[in-house]
């Protein structure tokens, strides 16, 4: 069965590139532009994995992550944080919030895909 991935980022070009790439890899992809939209999509689309940008309008990636992790129904949901902020404290914070992986922008598309596949395997 096809895995579903939700891409959340406020940068349209990044969303575009990720969407194109993951669709090509055969995933079922949905997108959201900010934190609130992300939570709505998680409920409606029920993805297996979320690629979550940290710096977003309305709700930051951390907040979204926290909210999701607070919901036991979403226990199986994998979260991969994407951030242009690569300092160790931020990585640690993301992982502490319950993210399964933390990827620093700019990232290698191949590695990201490999990581996504590994998490969903």
């Amino acid at each position: 069965m096809t895995k579903k991935i939700l891409i959340v980022d406020d940068e349209p070009n990044i969303v575009l590139s990720l969407e194109f790439m993951l669709k090509k890899e055969g995933f079922d992809v949905a997108v959201a532009g900010d934190g609130d939209a992300a939570l709505e999509k998680i409920a409606a689309f029920a993805p297996d994995l979320v690629l979550l940008d940290v710096m977003m309008p309305k709700k930051s990636g951390y907040e979204v992550c926290q909210t999701v992790r607070a919901d036991p129904a979403q226990g199986a949901l994998k979260i991969v944080m994407l951030s242009a902020k690569g300092r160790e404290t931020e990585v640690a914070k993301g992982l502490a919030m319950g993210a399964d992986a933390y990827v620093t922008k700019p990232f290698s598309t191949k590695e990201l895909v490999a990581q996504v596949k590994a998490l969903l395997a």
């Binding site: 940068e11 070009n13 242009a84 700019p106 990232f107 290698s108 598309t109």
Partner: peptide, 12 residues
């Protein structure tokens, strides 16, 4: 952060 954002798109 501001520099990495366009870089991310360009690289991808």
């Amino acid at each position: 952060h501001e520099l990495r954002t366009p870089l991310t798109s360009i690289r991808a």
